[in-house]
Amino acid sequence: MSDDKEAAKPGFLPIETNWFDRLFISVVIWVALSLFWLRFIEPLGLSVWIAAAISVALGAHIIRKG
């Protein structure tokens, strides 16, 4: 689904991706981490916002370097 027009550059991800693919991957990770957090970590007393912060940081890294 990567467009020919948009620059597909190699990064640390195992596949070639454009910025849209990397944004998509980041969102997928955010959702997965948040659900996991709600189920297992939030009952221990850590707010789900921590998961959100981690995801945003990770997402920014993926979008820039992926």
Binding site: M1, I15, F24, V28, A32
Partner: peptide, 24 residues
Amino acid sequence: VIVLYLTIVICWLLYTSLIAPRNK
């Protein structure tokens, strides 16, 4: 939302890992 999320993720994983490289 969660069912759609799971479907899209499975679909996308299969698509990128199996079909897209072949087209390229």
